[in-house]
């Protein structure tokens, strides 16, 4: 099948439709699983989210008349599926997410901790830190964020949602999305700084995370 062409779902040919559906799902599996894993944190939960997403998508496939748009459509279903499961869990636990009060006017900045202007022509600790940072460090820092912050950062930074799209999906005001995102970034950068410091990556950064002033969250 040539790429870029509009593929109308052949309602009268369920077998062909199923083959096209399976082909696209198979191609997108790593990204579907990766996103589900960042959202749900645990591999078993992530697999359940992907499985439920595929079932939900198949039930709604008649609503998609252009299979070339399946990628964005599938990811929206995945996010809805995860958020629904997450809300059910929240209801069962009968409590709202407890969010720590944060200082969004003075968020933690990894760059500010690492950057040393006087080293301008001789070195760049922030670049060295970034190069030494492992992908596992980033995944771990995201996974350790409280749910409400992790979900917003995955939607905006991993999936590229606009604040308005995230606001609609999570049924939260735009201001809440904005403040949670700010807090999420602050917590994430502080966690990366802590992990980097523990691993000896932030040798040039000066202060340990526990002794920072001003930028503490």
């Amino acid at each position: 099948m040539a790429t870029g062409t509009r593929l109308k779902v052949p309602v009268s040919q369920p077998r062909e439709r199923k083959e096209q559906f399976e082909k696209q799902v198979t191609c997108l599996m790593d990204r579907l699983y990766g996103t589900a894993l960042r959202l749900a944190r645990h591999p078993d939960d992530a697999e359940d989210v992907v499985a439920e997403t595929i079932s939900n998508a198949w039930k709604k496939l008649d609503q998609l008349d252009d299979l070339s748009r399946m990628e964005g459509w599938l990811f929206r279903i995945l996010h809805h599926t995860f958020v629904s499961q997450w809300r059910r869990r929240q209801c069962r636990q009968d409590r709202e997410v407890e969010l720590e009060p944060g200082d969004n006017d003075n968020p933690f900045s990894l760059f500010e901790k690492l950057h040393q202007p006087f080293l301008l022509w001789w070195g760049a600790p922030e670049k060295e830190f970034m190069n030494a940072l492992l992908q596992e460090d980033i995944s771990k820092a995201i996974d350790n964020l409280p749910d409400a912050y992790r979900i917003v950062i995955v939607l905006v930074e991993v999936e590229g949602y606009s604040y308005e799209e995230a606001s609609r999906l999570l049924d939260l005001p735009m201001g809440t999305i904005r403040s949670r995102l700010c807090r999420a970034r602050s917590l994430l950068q502080k966690a990366l700084w802590q992990q980097g410091h523990d691993a000896g990556l932030a040798r040039c950064g000066g202060h340990s995370p526990g002794n920072t002033s001003g930028g503490d969250v």
Binding site: M29, R31, Y33, G34, R38, I138, I142, E157, V158
Partner: peptide, 17 residues
């Protein structure tokens, strides 16, 4: 951070789907 959304899906999940 965006790259963290790409993870190899386990064969178990592929078989399940």
């Amino acid at each position: 951070i965006a790259t963290s959304g790409r993870q190899e899906a386990p064969q178990r999940l592929r078989r399940r789907i």
